[in-house]
Design a binder for these strands. Structure first.
Lengths: 334, 334
DNA sequence: TTGTAAGCGTTATCAG
DNA sequence: CTGATAACGCTTACAA
């Protein structure tokens, strides 16, 4: 049979409460006592019963990852990072997919009624969702945001996306490109505004005029990348380079170019954002920006746990990007 | 405050135990009583407390997905399917990544000590892992397998992979291909033996000789697909078509061909297996076999829950494959 | 610094 | 068929 806290107490010659104090890192225990308890825990291979702990402690020891439509790869990376942080802190991770439209309010309500997570991590595009944010704030649920549009109001993790894109587009300009197209991400994603801002800023810095015809709206999907590319390449004066706001769309651009007989990178340079596996698996390999996504999941969870444990704990952490110039970009033809 | 079972009992004018009986679909409750209780549950918006239930009921209401190194897309699909089945049955899903080598025994032990899942779903390559299977059997833990090498001994889900590959390779032969290469998946994956068997069977049926030089070992990775393709294309008499045991390797084949100036599908036909997103996002789009992966996760979970609830419950479910002939295959050049 | 006793919200036992 | 009462293993008062 599995050992209980009572057995540990007996073995260490102390009371249950003292064992509980040691296990929860509470103060007011002498070091000697603490050690004695730890030894008993070791010997008996004691593992706390999570259900009992939750029931008595009126907390769930659960954090939820709440999401809606993210790219599978992105979600998987975030999830892995969160899992790591959860395990290290004896928390459990619950997945909280929510539907769209009116469904999402009901879904998040159900998640809380059922699992009662002690806190929540939000990823785009839900990071900026007013319905979800309102629910969490009203119910006083601690939450951490990944890549929110308004970082100053929240705790969580972010990357300087604008700066990253400025560097990326400046790289294209340095190669000699003067007409650079952009395929935007969906409006609901706050991050896409940062990426668009970086595109414009890079042009401005280089003294290049902004041509609105070179900017088209995408939806982050491969197909929307193809459509966007076709629109841009149909222009009387088409761009020599296209920056798509994510890798899936950039892959769509490469595919569309291939189908039109436009050679990448000889006749068209393409770059994306995220460095998902597809970026290095398509031909030619994609120039893109790498986010430390898994690390962002881990850090967001850490900040969330901080906030859970202390009312004003947690802050907005910044992580670094990495530019990856690969085979899909080159100096323009002439 | 959240309503408890006691409140429901009071509202319905019955005892707590009777409410519990109704909630757990236990027998020995009159229909009238049952209805009365249900109405009270509705009115009070009663939701059971999971921790209390686990503590008292000596079960965790948790099923674990135990995995090791699968493709991210595959894992994500399985996970989604499991999540659906778990939610529908008021079970919680816990992710159980395990390391390799000696680590995996410790990891799975830790998973059980910590979460005590009521059952486990195994996916390749862990489905066939003797260490993991031994642990589960010794501890009497119910488990379901996805795509196991020895389906007759387990409950879970499988697809007729051999038959699928026979159809696929027969398709290549029908196009006129006579020298067809194969890049195998890792040995630890039982499924790869089925795929290899299908390749050989299709050749045999068509009366084509088996040439061992046309079969190379891969590791399911994009890179190993590139390596395998290079080895096959370096042969004095290279194949006109290559069947890679999964899509990532097939994508690697296309990339390697591109880098050598070999045109796909004009000079080389390529096909994969799984229909992951990359299959439709690379250029040319990949001919492949679709598995209903998410559905497999869902079905495996249902069989597992059946087995958890009744000692001999659960069986090996078969699911259908779908052949997808796309742009990466064509009749050979001459 | 430590211990005692009373819950936490269910399910299981066993009696009606 | 139904109900009172004792677990389940832990934490939180409160006492010492």
């Amino acid at each position: 049979m599995r050992s209980r806290i009572e057995d540990v107490a007996a073995a260490a010659g102390v009371s249950m409460k003292t064992v509980s104090r040691v296990l929860n890192n509470e103060p007011n225990v002498r070091d000697i006592t603490r050690e004695r308890v730890m030894r008993a825990v070791e010997q008996l291979q004691y593992k706390p019963n999570l259900s009992a702990r939750s029931l008595a402690g009126q907390r769930s020891c659960v954090v939820a990852l709440v999401y809606n439509n993210p790219s599978r790869n992105y979600l998987m990376e975030i999830q892995n990072g969160m899992l790591e942080a959860c395990r290290a802190n004896h928390y459990n991770l619950v997945l909280g997919p929510v539907g769209s439209g009116t469904q999402r309010a009901a879904d998040i309500k159900g998640l809380f009624e059922y699992f009662g997570p002690d806190g929540v991590v939000l990823i785009p595009p839900l990071t900026d969702d007013p319905v979800v944010l309102a629910y969490l704030q009203e119910h006083g649920v601690p939450f951490a945001c990944i890549a929110p549009r308004e970082p100053q109001n929240h705790i969580g993790v972010m990357m300087e996306e604008t700066a990253a894109v400025v560097e990326l587009v400046a790289g294209l300009i340095a190669l000699g490109h003067r007409r650079i197209g952009h395929i935007k991400g969906p409006r609901a994603h706050g991050a896409c505004q940062w990426r668009y801002a970086g595109y414009r800023q890079a042009l401005r810095t280089a003294g290049l005029a902004y041509d609105p015809r070179l900017v088209v709206q995408g939806e982050f999907s491969f197909e929307s990348g193809m459509q966007g590319a076709n629109r841009l390449l149909d222009l009387p004066d088409p761009p020599t380079a296209i920056f798509a706001a994510n890798d899936d769309m950039a892959a769509g651009v490469i595919r569309a170019a291939g189908e039109r007989g436009v050679s990448v990178p000889r006749e068209l340079s393409v770059c994306g954002f995220d460095d998902t596996p597809i970026a290095s698996h398509i031909y030619p390999a994609l120039t893109t920006v790498r986010q430390p996504t898994s690390e962002m999941g881990r850090l967001a969870t850490l900040e969330l746990l901080d906030r859970i444990r202390t009312p004003d704990g947690g802050r907005m952490v910044h992580v670094q990007h990495t530019l990856l110039f690969r085979d899909s970009t080159r100096a323009p033809a002439h």
